[in-house]
Structures are given as C-alpha cells and as structure tokens.
Design a protein around this nucleic acid. Structure first.
Lengths: 184, 184, 184, 184
DNA sequence: TATGAATGAGATTTCATTCAT
DNA sequence: TATGAATGAAATCTCATTCAT
C-alpha cells in the first residue's frame, strides 16, 4: 500500500512492492497472477475498521442526532484526513477510472454504506424534531465533502498552506448544525 | 491533456500524445526535453479562463455578497464539476505529490488566488453587515469543498450513483447562507 | 570487448554485446546500470595478465639489465602488438578523453606500474655499470613507444603496409642498447 | 574538426557540427550527402602544411643528415605532438578501421610520403658516411614512433603525468644518433 | 514455499535525414 | 543559398512476467 500510495499504480514497480514486503518478486507472482491482481488485493485489504465502527455506532447509539454529529462523527472526520486512509482515497481518485471493478467493490463496501449511515442520522434528526428538512437530506454528500477535501488538501498543498483539519471539521459541523437545527 | 487525463502521467505513452496531436514522437522531443517536461507544459497551459473571469468579477461587481454567491459564484460552481477542469483536478491529485514544482505553480497561479477571492467576498459580506462572523471566515475552503467533491465524484462514482451536481451546489449555497446570514 | 573494439563505444549497440554474450539485452541492464557502466566493466576486466607477469619478473629475476631487455622484455614487446591488448589500447586512445575515470583506473593499474617497472630495470643497469646515463632514464617512454606504435600501425595501416612487428622490436632494442651500453 | 576530435565520429551530432560552423543542419546536407561524407571532407581538408613543408625541405636542403635530424626534423617532431594535428591522429586511430577509404587516402597523401622522406634522409646519411647501417634503415618507423607516442600520451594521460614532449624528442634524437653515427 | 536470474515486449529518447519555404 | 520544423528508424533503458532450482 505504501508503495502504490507514493507512486500510483503504473509508476510502482513490482520489485519495489516485493522489497518493502521483504520477499522476492517471484513470491508475489505465486500469490497474485498479475500486478493488477496484487494491486486490487492491496486495496481491498486496506479497509478502514474505523468506518465500520462508526456505522455500527449509529444503530446502537442512543445519542441525539446533534450529539452524534458533534461526537462520534466529528471524531471520525477529524481523524480520517491525516490517517492512512487518505492515501487510499487518493489512489481511488487517481486509479479508479482505470479499474472499474475496484471502484465497484469500493462503492459497495465503503461508500454506499457510509452514505446510508449519514442518511440514517439525518432522518433520525428530522423525525425527532431536531432538524428541519434541508439540502443535506437530498445531498448527504455535503456532510462529508470537507472530509474528502481535507484528505486531498493535506496530500497536495500541505507544503504551501498547512490546513488545520481539526478546525476545519469543527467549523463545518457547527456551520451545518447552525443551518439545519430547529430553533427552540 | 486528454491523454494524460485519461491514463495518468505514467500510463500515458508519449506516442499516444503525439498521435492525438497529429505529429511524430520526435517532434515532441524537439519542443520538450523529456516526457515530464511535456507533462508540465500541458498542465500549465491548461488554465481555466473561467476562474480568472470569476476573480475579475469580484473586484468589479457591485452586487451584494449574497447576490454574488447566489449569482456568479454558484454559476461557476455548477459549471466546473463537469467541465474539462475536473480532469485537471484529478491529475493534480494523482500526480501532484510526484511533481512538487507543478503543485507550486498551480498553487501560486490558481489555488491561492481563488482562496483570496473567496475571502474578499466573505469579508465584504461581514463588513457590509450581511453576514456575521463564522467558520467560513477562518476556513474559506468550506465554501469550495463541495466543488472539489463533485469533480471527484463525477469521475469516480458516476456509474454507481449519478450526482445531481447542480442541485448539490444550490443546496450547498443555501445551506451556507442560511447559516451565516444576519437575520433582519 | 570484441564488440566495443570493433566499433568503438558509441557505435556499439547494447544488443550486439548481448547477442555475442548469448544473453538478452535486459540481463545486461540487470548487471550494469547503463551502457557506459557496462563499457567500463568490460575495459577493467580486460587486464593483461602478461604485463603483470612481466612486472613480477623484474623483481625476481637475476638477469642483467641487458639480458632482461633482450629476454623477457623483448618477448613481451613482440607479443603485445598483435595480441588482444592492442584493441584495448585503441579503445583507450579513442574513448579515453570521454571517460576520464576509466583513464584514471587504467593509469593507476596499468600504465604507471609499467613505467615504474621500466625505470627499475634501467636503474639496475646504470647502478650495475652496464648502462651509462642517457635520455631513457628521463624518458622511459622511449623504450615503449615502438610498442604503442606497432599496436596502432597494425590496426590502421596493415592493409597498406604490413609491419614486421617482431623485426621492429628487435631493431628497437638493439638500437637502444647500442646507444646506452657502456663500452668495455 | 573540433567536434569530431572531441567526440569521435559516431558520438558527434551533425547539429553540433552545424552549430559550431554557424550554419543550419540543412545547409550541411546541401554540401554533403551524408554525415560520413562530411566527416571525410573534414579529415581531408585538415592536411598539415607542416609535413609537406618538411618533405620539401629534404630535397632542397644542403644540410648533412645529422644536421637535418637535429634541425628541421626535431623542430617538426617537437611541434606536432601538441599541434592540432594530434587530434587528427587520434581520429585516424579511432575511426580508421571503420573508414578504410579514409585510411587509404591518408596513407597515400600523408603517411607513405612521410616514410619515404625519412628513408631519403637516412640513406643520404649512410651514403655520405655519416651513419652506419642499422635497424632504422629497415624500420624507419623507429624514428617517428615517439612522435605518435607523444601525440597519444598528451591526449590521454596528460592529466595524470604531463609529458615534456620537447625533452622527449630531443632525447630520442640524441639516443638514435648516438646509436647510428659513425665514430670518427 | 521461495528465490532471483533471465527474458522480451514495449517504453523513452536520440538523431541522421528530408523538405516546405 | 539557407533555414529549421518535422520525421522515423533505431538506440537505450524499463519492468512485468517466467522459470529453473
């Protein structure tokens, strides 16, 4: 994963992967038929347990929607942009269009689940009278777009303008809540 | 640009670029010392005139901040995610870390200018009493993160979930404005 | 060595070297980073064991200086001009100025040692009263210049005037000895 | 000539020759059909007028053979090793075997004439009773071998051991004369 | 299971030569 | 006569993949 993350799929040499794994090139070909196979396996095995945990939380928790957003979700949103997961995001952006089955797998196992989870929280908020209906109901992506943004920014522009990702996430959540919360 | 956008830097053959340009491989090497040089030149010559126009607008316009966000800015935000610029964004994300001078150029000529422009609009809004202070003043990135998000999504996940980018942008602007506008 | 000797460095194709070695182009690049590396390795591994033997002889032998020049040295001088070493000489002349580190290596490991050996013999002759002081003490090169001359001539002008290299060498030694020997 | 001398035939680019000549590549091809044609023309036009002058001298002069060797010949032998002609020698050694017609031309116009001239001088010496018969009569090459040697050495080993070419030549002539002069 | 030497197809790069102007 | 943009064949070099051990 390290190697692919640094150089992208095409520019990563199989030998480089073998070296970092401490094995010979030949052994890789015993386990994976082609370089692409190897790449896919690498990506698939790199699933964030954090996201799964978060999704689990939603069902089990007895927090209000706002508490959830300010608590576990914000937590998650703060950790991800500087976690190893960010390189996976970059890889998916870079290589996705050339590896549709990888995107499909990623969509099914990660993205769609995540989106569903967010919808669940928002609906809970609306039903419970915490939130009024708003754009985020139709576009739950608005809730996560700064997360993606931060993952990208930290990998591309950090040298020119280091982003306070924690602050960004806190600001984002307060901005959204300020917009969708029902006044009492 | 087409070729690099489709395949990424490493996977694009110089011959492919030459063929699409309707010239011979050799000619490219007459103008560019290496494949990397060629790549950099391609990227640099692909500046969105749209962004420049938008930045110009800000100085000249006599619109209120809200009118600006709902007008020219929303316009821009709707057009970009499906414009050719999106492939440039993807290329920068994919190849940036391996080509720091390209990132530096892009930062200076595009990103920092854009960020400054947004700050100008927001300050105008605050000074004019339209907006109260909020997270977007510290993190103007929050205003553009859905634009990046949409550019990425449309290139990676469109096959699985086609995003209504216009709707997303409208929703985003209304969400933000709802949060930062001063009540009267 | 054959290939480089025939065509010179620039005009020799790596593929040609590989073919003569009975391996693939790729393998050469596994062992040598560049064509130049390969070339240097070829040259360095082509050390004449004959010269080393000659140099050894000087220390060990109990011959008089004249006997040495008429014996082992003349032997060496007769063999070299038509030995494989001559192509190495031609290569060093042709390619040396473009590969200074190769010249440096050759100087240290071959030429300077050879010159020192000749000086040793001449000094022995002078000290032993065989030879009087002469120009060859200051310019031991005079003793070997016909060897180089013959190596060059046989490679360039043989078709036009075949040189009797053995005769040349014998004539040279007798000429020199006639000039430097002390009359008794 | 400069360009070919520095890099050898194969490694010299036609463009480099054109640049140094201050003309365009295209113009060269107006005057010379191929790179090889150009090369041959360059070599042929670079004839040392010095050698011709020397050869003339022999016929005309009323010097004794010894006076000639110590005078005009030594003069010539001192000048040549550091003159532009030395690069021509290196080129002939390097490229000769690949360009037989060039060697043939050079042989006819330069080398054979030079050798004949030397023979003339030596015969004059022998006939005039100055010299007794010796190896140089059969191998006049012995008289010029230090000249070639010095031309090569100065181009290959000067950085490691700068040769006093004037001293070398004086030593050579005195050594030879000492050997072949008739005692009186 | 594991190695690493070896291959060969294909990529980048070079450069003699041509040709429209 | 002169240019220099353009070509394309061939060179160097890379690297995924194979295979004997």
């Amino acid at each position: 994963m390290e190697a692919f993350a640094e150089n992208g799929y095409a520019a990563t040499r199989v030998e480089e992967v073998a070296k970092r794994a401490g094995v010979s090139k030949g052994l890789l070909y015993l386990y994976f038929k082609t370089k692409e196979d190897l790449f896919k396996a690498v990506i698939r095995n790199f699933v964030s347990p954090r996201l799964d945990a978060l999704i689990q939380d939603i069902g089990n928790s007895d927090l209000t929607a706002e508490e959830f957003l300010r608590g576990p979700f914000l937590d998650f949103a703060k950790k991800v942009p500087r976690s190893p997961a960010r390189v996976l995001a970059r890889l998916m952006i870079a290589e996705g269009p050339k590896h549709p089955d990888l995107v499909a797998w990623y969509w099914e196992n990660v993205v769609s689940k995540g989106m569903a989870a967010i919808r669940t929280v928002l609906e809970k908020g609306v039903r419970g009278g915490e939130f009024h209906r708003s754009a985020v109901d139709d576009f739950p992506q608005l809730l996560v777009s700064p997360v993606l943004f931060a993952m990208v920014w930290t990998q591309v522009f950090d040298a020119h303008d280091k982003l306070d990702t924690d602050g960004l996430m806190e600001g984002h959540i307060s901005l959204v809540l300020n917009s969708i919360k029902v006044d009492r």
